[in-house]
Design a protein around this nucleic acid. Sequence first.
DNA 1: GTGAAAGCGCTAACAA
DNA 2: TTGTTAGCGCTTTCAC
Lengths: 334, 334
Amino acid sequence: MVTLKQLAKELNVSISTVSKALNNSEEIGDETIKRVKELAELYNYKPNKVALSLKQNKTNTIGVIIPDILNHFLSKVLFGIEREAAQHGYNIITCISNESLEKEKHSLQLLANGSVDGFILCVAEETQVKNEIAHFKKTISQGLPIVMFDRVAHDVLCDKVIVDDFDATYRATKSLIEENRKQIAFITNIDELSVGKLRERGYNKAILESRNHEPLVLKMNKLKDSQQKIKSLFKKHKKLDGVIAADSSSGIIAINTAVSFGRKVPKDISVIGFSSQSVAIHSIPKLTTIRQHAKIIGANAAQLLIHRLQNMSEDIDVKTKIVKTSLVKSKSTL
Amino acid sequence: MVTLKQLAKELNVSISTVSKALNNSEEIGDETIKRVKELAELYNYKPNKVALSLKQNKTNTIGVIIPDILNHFLSKVLFGIEREAAQHGYNIITCISNESLEKEKHSLQLLANGSVDGFILCVAEETQVKNEIAHFKKTISQGLPIVMFDRVAHDVLCDKVIVDDFDATYRATKSLIEENRKQIAFITNIDELSVGKLRERGYNKAILESRNHEPLVLKMNKLKDSQQKIKSLFKKHKKLDGVIAADSSSGIIAINTAVSFGRKVPKDISVIGFSSQSVAIHSIPKLTTIRQHAKIIGANAAQLLIHRLQNMSEDIDVKTKIVKTSLVKSKSTL
DNA sequence: GTGAAAGCGCTAACAA
DNA sequence: TTGTTAGCGCTTTCAC
């Protein structure tokens, strides 16, 4: 890489002259500016990012820590973050916590050494279960702002972007009740997560209000045996005519299971799930979905963080932004 | 963040003494080392990464440029890269090219200013179509090594990690022929990509060798109307009894379509696709898949790059690593 | 055993 | 208009 030094030497001027010329300083003569810029162009000079970071004490880099990059929702949020960040001239360093508290702590520590200006993160499952928040507080007290999204630690004072999980399932369940469905199940493989719990409660509320039946909840442990568990559910509850799925796969599997049992969707049974379009087409008929607008969540998180970074002097109040879900009707509901 | 300077001041020693003490230099007395380390511990001192990078002229950071993070295969590779990199003390900066040549160039340029030590990337679709390689060569000539994976530019001299795409579909098609399937279609929504073409050729070869029928290829434009196109295919070719899918969604959709037409899978028709387990369960019966071992691809790419970075003085020959696919039989084939 | 000083690449206050 | 200098945080050579 070419440096100012080399340019200066070749042009027989001082380093600072070159620096100023490239930054269009008023101080430097037009002729000099021209000469400098031409040579810089020729050598494809780019200011060294590391030196700039050291000098200006900021990296224009955001640390992103997510629990699982294979989760479609999370990678979509990441997409939103990346795009928004890039538009503002920020890079993102990504770490994957693998739902582990240890890894989350470690990543946070590792990047809090000047590598990034702040963090955007989604709390790991283990962290939520153990309700650990010390590492977040420590990072913030070191002057590195954090923005949490989706799964958040409520007791940490920082910007947050969340989804209206409770309302989402409440409304979705209601809509099935209005379709005159009489036995609606809630199936989930994320019951350990804060958002999973919220979704379950929204469902519960709607069911209890309907007075049709007791809540019927199926909890599965991750993907492995979802197909089997869902099959059993259908066998056991022959009159099941509605399903609300809390995650992105279960709804698809529920439809396919129903179809394979010869039941008509949506004539005999309606299904609603939390998926995005690209997954929703994996069932026939296509799944009616609760869209979380993952990209928007990511973009919002990035905006919040960048805004805070660019106004570090002022003492801005922490904000919590709620990105509302929307129920996108497709062919798995009436 | 605490700096050496502050520690030095508090301890009434020089900066260099502190630095040496923390690095367990022989020069420094045991007593001093102890004092220094205790204070460093107390203040949670961490060497500033940016300053280190500037000094040592390396960042321990890898730039990763992928075309699409919502693609499950690519995000899985990213996962593999991240894990391997983290194990070797490297961070990754992720950029998403969105299949655009411009964005790819831009990201490459942007990070080639000292932000990263090298790149791991998967060539964008537009880049492949236009067959542009100048930006890759330029980057490499600037001293930043590149490792390409999956979709590679053959004319660029660099390390590569690829999949045995041709063989994979050749063998998969063969296996259907051995099941005595008489009319096997190839469906793809990635026919513009180098890997898509290779997969098609593998299928073609097997079909032509069988002398059963002419190759029957369905090309779709991305996800939007896959369901529709596949439906039409089934309607038009009533005797279709085998499907090879080149991407991760089409196989799932093919099964669901067949089932919805009342055809038995795998009794009447066999389907094989390029998916991973988490997607394969989206169909009933579960899809028989060609596994690409995405995580291993990522890990290999990271290894190749890190090895090169740590031996920059030596002139290592470029390597191309082939990660073999495996055919994982499930319930959609006999 | 400890410290002073140079230098990584850059910017900016100050001097000329 | 241009150059000198200091300094961002760190390591390391060379003096003491």
